[in-house]
Write a protein that binds this DNA or RNA. Structure first.
Length: 449
RNA sequence: GGCCCCAUCGUCUAGUGGUUAGGACAGCAGGUUUUCAAUCUGUUAACCAGAGUUCAAUUCUCUGUGGGGUCACCA
């Protein structure tokens, strides 16, 4: 049996004490993609030995977030440490019999502390292991002492459980965060004590907050579910997360999951930590929004549309189709729709704008001139049968050019939107329809009197 | 503090013993039908410091500085 013929097994071992963190999701992605590209498999292990903090609902949520990202987990193969007490007992008894571990009588430090723990008999040697991205790393394990590996025969501590489980699950490649580096030597010691083969180690750099500290709640959204709720697309999350700490060495930046599985290269992982940059995430998300079909974009918009707007469905469905392209080029993520509607640029499609008449004047344009322009616009528009933006534009263009485009187009646009910033007046007109367009232009006229 | 890891534009990064140190995001300027968005073009901006090796260091070595991790009867 050579390494080549052995099936590659990676694992994702979260402790179900919270929602899936973006950093963990990134680690899961690296494991999943590496396994996939080698015809292997990523196993899911729930490290739920901490009875107090572990909750099944978190495990479910983590699984659900992974699924949303497109990571497939074989749920029949899920391993839960809480169910493996007897397995750990088997290894611990063997270790004690072998003399690689021993029961140690301890003086209880606190009330309620047990008086007996199981310690590892440290051979006190140098351990050298190879990390895929950093090369050989050497530790003197003497300083570790005879560390505790279990509270009792069925209550293992982290390091023992990890080593036993990885061994029994047949894990060949461990890809984890760089905080695992310092833990590796003692895990190797335990491996050697139970005669488990040494897996390949790859330690990934952290993803950091903007101030280079650990990414935590105080920096904003940190769980996948929050990004999902904000209307980020899973394709964008995957793409961004994978390019954080890895790149193919070419200028290519947009990768589908399939392409990642094809082109990912474990040895090209970065050494230094990388800041999780929302601005770049937004860019990725926008790129993927641009690629969406009209149908799926429409569904997504409907999903994120504020309730208030949905109540006006009769009205909005009619114009929604026309608004879609305008919305598409204006949002980074679907939750932007909320702000766009509430006092933002979606609002003026559904109700007449309120504004100060002074704002209708372009730069130093005169009132009387502007009134003339608006009247002219109304008369031209009134004669358009095919009320499409192209058509409207063509009809008004010569006049606008002759009188000064800003002089004509600004008051028109402002009359329709009541905002300093909005889509162009032709697009607005088409979406509003001839009747409403003229109505608003007349309102503007009143405001100028 | 001991041990371990890391260090290229603001951010993500490419890269080399000799390069105009490249790309992307952001920024800035301009074009594109008035504003915004989108789009196109152009552009600002980086090798942590010192010493050593060398004809030549951003690149190799050492030291320092800075950041991070780990030293639990948590995971």
């Amino acid at each position: 049996m050579t390494e080549q013929t052995k099936k590659i097994i990676t694992r994702f071992p979260p402790s179900p004490t919270g929602y899936l963190h973006v950093g963990s999701a990134r680690t899961a992605l690296f494991n999943y993609i590496y396994a996939k590209q080698n015809g292997g498999e990523m196993l899911f292990r729930s490290e739920d030995t901490d009875r107090e903090r572990s909750k099944k609902e978190f495990e479910d949520e983590i699984l659900e977030s992974l699924e949303w990202l497109g990571i497939e987990i074989d749920k029949t193969k899920i391993v839960r440490q809480s169910e493996r007490g007897e397995t750990y007992r088997k290894y611990l008894e063997k270790m004690i019999a072998d003399g690689t571990a021993y029961v140690s009588k301890e003086i209880a430090e606190k009330e309620g502390d047990r008086t007996e723990v199981i310690r590892f008999k440290n051979p006190n040697k140098k351990v050298i292991f190879k990390d895929t991205v950093r090369g050989d790393i050497e530790f003197d394990t003497t300083e570790l002492g005879d560390f505790v590996i279990a509270k009792s025969l069925t209550e293992p501590l982290y390091h023992l459980a990890v080593v036993v489980d990885d061994y029994e699950m047949g894990v060949t490649h461990i890809i984890r965060g760089e905080d695992g580096i310092s833990n590796t030597p003692r895990q190797i010691l335990i491996q050697e004590a139970i005669n488990a083969p040494r897996p390949f180690y790859t330690h990934m750099p952290f993803s950091l907050a903007p101030d280079r500290s650990k990414l935590s709640k105080r920096h904003g959204a940190v769980s996948i579910r929050e990004y999902r709720k904000m209307g980020y697309l899973p394709e964008a999350m995957i793409n961004y997360l994978m390019l954080l700490g890895w790149n193919p060495g070419t200028d290519k930046e947009i990768f589908s999951l399939g392409e990642l599985i094809e082109e990912f290269d474990l040895t090209k992982i970065q050494k230094g930590g990388a800041i999780f940059d929302l601005v770049k995430l937004d860019w990725f998300n926008k790129e993927y929004i641009k690629k969406m079909s009209e149908q799926s974009f429409r569904e997504k918009v409907l999903e994120f549309l504020p309730e208030k707007l949905k109540d006006m469905r009769e009205y909005s469905d009619e114009i929604l189709t026309k608004m879609l392209p305008v919305i598409k080029e204006r949002i980074n993520k679907f939750s932007d729709l909320k702000e766009m509607f509430e006092g933002g640029e979606l609002e003026y499609y559904f109700k007449n704008p309120e504004y100060n008449g002074e704002n209708l004047l372009w730069k130093d344009a005169q009132k009387q001139e502007t009134i003339g322009h608006l009247n002219k616009i109304i008369s031209i528009i009134d004669n358009i049968d095919n009320f499409q933006s192209d058509e409207i534009k063509t009809s008004l263009w010569d006049y606008a050019t002759e009188k000064g485009r800003g002089n004509v187009l600004w008051p028109m646009r402002f009359a329709l939107s009541g905002k300093d910033k909005s889509p162009d007046p032709f697009t607005l007109s088409e979406i509003l329809g001839k009747q409403k367009t003229i109505e608003r232009l007349k309102i503007a006229l009143d405001k100028l009197k």
